[in-house]
Deep mutational scan, measured.
Amino acid sequence: HSHMSHTQVIELERKFSHQKYLSAPERAHLAKNLKLTETQVKIWFQNRRYKTKRKQLSSEL
C-alpha cells in the first residue's frame, strides 16, 4: 500500500469535485501528472465515491 502525498490528494480531490467518474484516458493522464499508477487513481476514486455515498445515506437518516 503506497502513501499519497498531501499534494496528490489535493489534486485528486479537485478533480473529483468536477467529475466523479474518469474515463480511462483521463485516468491515465491524471496518474501521469501526479506520478501515481492508474490503479491508484482508480481505487482512490472508487473509495471516494463510496465515502460520498455513505455520507449522503447517513445524512438522510
Rank of each mutant, 00 (worst) to 15 (best):
R14N: 06
R48V: 04
T39I: 10
S2R: 12
Q40D: 05
H1C: 15
K35P: 01
S5N: 07
H1W: 08
R49N: 03
E60H: 08
L30D: 01
M4W: 04
T52S: 12
H1Q: 10
H18S: 11
K51T: 08
Q46Y: 11
I43W: 06
N33I: 15
L61N: 14
K20P: 09
K53Q: 08
A24K: 11
V41L: 04
S17I: 07
E38N: 06
K15V: 15
F45G: 00
K15H: 12
E11C: 14
K35N: 14
K20D: 02
E26F: 02
A31H: 01
T37W: 03
T39G: 07
S58D: 14
I10Y: 13
H6I: 13
R27Q: 07
M4N: 01
L22S: 00
K55Y: 05
W44A: 00
R49D: 01
H18T: 12
S23M: 02
H3E: 10
S59N: 14
S23L: 03
Q8Y: 03
E13R: 06
A24F: 11
V41F: 05
Q40G: 03
V9F: 07
L22V: 04
F16S: 02
L12Q: 01
T39N: 11
S58E: 12
R27I: 15
R49H: 03
F45K: 00
V41T: 01
S23Q: 03
A31E: 02
S2N: 10
F45V: 01
H18M: 12
R54C: 15
V9M: 15
Y50A: 14
F16D: 01
Q40W: 03
H1L: 10
A28F: 06
M4F: 13
H1T: 10
K35S: 11
R49G: 01
S58A: 10
I43L: 10
A28E: 07
Q56K: 12
S23V: 01
R27V: 14
K53C: 15
Q8M: 04
Y21N: 02
K53W: 07
N33T: 14
Q56S: 14
T37D: 04
Y21V: 03
E60P: 06
E11A: 14
T52H: 15
E13L: 09
L57G: 13
H18Q: 10
E38R: 03
L36D: 00
K51P: 06
V9L: 12
L61F: 07
L34H: 01
K53V: 07
H29Y: 09
S17E: 13
R14S: 07
S59M: 08
Y21T: 04
K55S: 11
R27W: 06
E11R: 05
Q40A: 05
H1G: 09
S59L: 09
M4G: 01
T7F: 15
Q8W: 05
Y50P: 03
Q8A: 05
K15T: 11
R49C: 06
L36R: 00
Y50D: 08
T52N: 12
V41C: 04
I10A: 11
Y21D: 03
P25G: 15
N47A: 09
A24G: 10
S58R: 08
R14G: 03
L34Y: 00
K42A: 11
L12V: 01
S17Q: 13
L61Q: 08
H1V: 10
F45A: 00
K42P: 00
Q46M: 11
E11Q: 11
T39V: 11
E13P: 01
K51C: 15
A31Y: 01
V9S: 05
R27D: 02
L22H: 01
Q8E: 02
A24D: 05
V41M: 02
F16L: 02
L22G: 00
T7K: 14
Q56G: 11
F16C: 07
L57Q: 13
W44Q: 01
K53T: 07
L12M: 03
T7H: 12
T52C: 15
K53R: 13
Q46S: 06
S2G: 13
W44T: 00
F16M: 02
S59D: 14
H18D: 10
T52R: 10
S5V: 03
M4I: 10
E11K: 06
N47E: 11
T7P: 04
L12G: 02
L36I: 04
K20M: 06
E60S: 09
Y50N: 12
A31K: 00
R14D: 04
S2F: 14
S59C: 15
Q8L: 04
Q56I: 09
S17Y: 07
K15A: 15
R27E: 04
S59T: 12
E13Q: 08
R54T: 09
F45N: 00
S59A: 12
R48K: 13
H6E: 08
I43N: 08
K42N: 07
Q46D: 06
E38L: 06
Q56R: 11
Y50M: 14
E26S: 03
E26V: 04
T37R: 02
I43K: 09
L30C: 06
A24Q: 12
T39E: 14
K55H: 07
Q19W: 07
E13T: 04
V41N: 00
P25R: 12
F45E: 00
S2E: 08
Q40C: 08
R27G: 03
R48T: 04
E26K: 04
K20C: 15
M4R: 01
L30N: 00
T7A: 15
E60K: 07
R48W: 05
I10E: 12
R54N: 13
T39A: 12
K42G: 04
P25V: 12
A28K: 10
E60Y: 06
E38V: 11
Q56D: 10
E26G: 02
E60N: 09
W44I: 02
L22E: 00
R48S: 04
R27Y: 10
H29N: 11
L61G: 12
F45I: 02
Q19F: 06
Q40V: 05
S59I: 09
Y50Q: 13
V9W: 14
S17W: 08
H3G: 08
E26R: 02
K53Y: 08
K15R: 14
V41Y: 01
Y50H: 13
K55L: 14
M4C: 13
R48P: 01
S59H: 09
H18K: 13
H29Q: 14
K42T: 06
V9N: 04
I43V: 08
K15E: 06
H1D: 09
R48E: 06
N47S: 07
Q46C: 12
R14I: 05
S2W: 13
W44R: 01
H1P: 09
H6Y: 10
R27S: 04
M4D: 01
E26Q: 06
A24S: 06
Q46F: 08
F16Y: 15
S23E: 03
Q8H: 03
A28R: 11
L12N: 00
K51Y: 11
I10N: 07
N47T: 09
H18P: 02
Q40R: 03
K42S: 06
E11I: 06
W44E: 01
A28I: 09
S17C: 15
K35D: 13
E60D: 13
E26H: 03
R54G: 11
K32G: 05
Y50L: 14
L30A: 01
E11W: 06
L22K: 00
I10W: 07
K42H: 08
S58M: 10
K35R: 10
S17H: 14
L57A: 13
L30P: 01
Q8D: 03
M4L: 09
A28L: 09
Q56A: 08
Q40I: 05
R14Y: 05
I43P: 00
H18E: 14
T37M: 03
L61C: 15
L57V: 14
Q8T: 05
S58C: 15
R48F: 04
S17A: 11
I43H: 09
H6F: 08
L30V: 05
F16N: 02
K32F: 09
H6N: 08
L61A: 14
T39L: 14
Y21P: 01
I10L: 12
E13C: 15
V9E: 09
S5P: 02
E26T: 03
Q46K: 15
H6R: 13
A28Q: 09
R49S: 02
R48I: 07
T37V: 02
S58H: 07
N33A: 15
S58L: 14
I10G: 04
R54F: 08
E60Q: 12
V9C: 13
L22C: 09
W44M: 02
S17R: 14
T7M: 13
E38M: 05
L61K: 11
S17D: 07
S5E: 04
K51H: 12
N47G: 05
H18V: 12
S58T: 11
K32C: 07
H29I: 14
P25W: 12
L61T: 15
V9Q: 08
H3L: 10
Y50F: 09
W44C: 02
I43F: 07
Q19R: 10
A31T: 02
K53N: 10
K55W: 06
H3P: 09
